[in-house]
Design a binder for these strands. Structure first.
Lengths: 137, 137
DNA sequence: TTAATCCTTAGAGTTAACTCTAGGTCAATA
DNA sequence: TATTGACCTAGAGTTAACTCTAAGGATTAA
């Protein structure tokens, strides 16, 4: 079975070897095996697991919470409910994050228009009489 | 003209007084006036500016970059182009953030289904023969 | 065999963004 | 008048997530 070194995995996942070792230190990679002299040997399935870790991280889950999930995975079928609940919770959190960004996007688009108009006029004074309303045109 | 104390503003914006003083220290609030004895007096327009700061912060803009924007605002019409460009850049960044979250959402929903099925079966073994594909059903 | 280039660990250093403490001022109230 | 509870500053402490250094081990290439 093909395996990969830490630097190959780092390159593949766009991480540094430092970061991967840090994750290991934090208990996020208990599944990675070692050669007799201690070198980490990553399997394809380990890289898949790291992709899930990266997915959770990209939704702002703290490393300690990701570790809970990894621990549950090691504990087997008795933790299926926790893992299901965790992903359902995360789904709700990510939905909220998307909604929040969409809300801020409106503010930003408003500002884009504000500065476009000001640029065309050569001065911000053009907006002197604007109502302080952000969600309307 | 009505003004507000730092604790009133903190409550309104769901921040701590520590955070507001920290922002001030970092140069994000050069516009806030003081009473003769040094107490900050926030105007409505100051609170509006803080809302924009919070908007930028919620899209993960570092405080140092937000400070650039605040400095440009103090510099007047000569920086209109920079400010326009900044909001256009931010718009693209937030669009990318939303796309990224939507992509991760698919992974999370896949995992929700995975664990739902496993829970119903009582074991993760039900997925033993699954293809390692995440984007399909 | 010697140099280069991987890999390892322990632990120190960095950065951002707070978060808090100590010591002080000032205005209102018991 | 004394105390309470706002406010202030300077600066120290915290936390998360890296990021790097030092010192050393194994493998390959000349």
């Amino acid at each position: 079975m093909k395996t990969y070194t830490i630097s190959e995995v780092a390159k593949e996942l766009n991480l540094t070897v430092y970061t991967l070792r840090y994750y290991d230190k934090e208990g996020l990679m208990p599944f990675v095996e070692r050669t007799p002299n201690g070198t980490r040997r990553f399997k394809e399935s380990d890289i898949d697991a790291l992709r899930i870790i990266e997915c959770l991280k990209s939704t702002a889950m703290p490393i300690k919470e990701i570790k809970n999930f990894i621990d549950w995975c090691s504990d087997g079928d008795s933790t299926l409910q926790q893992r299901y609940d965790m992903f359902m919770d995360r789904k709700a959190i990510v939905e909220a994050q998307i909604e929040e960004l969409k809300k801020q996007m409106e503010v930003i688009e408003h500002k884009c228009n504000y500065y476009k108009t000001a640029l065309e006029a050569g001065t911000e004074d053009i907006h002197k009489n604007d109502k302080m309303v952000i969600s309307t045109t």
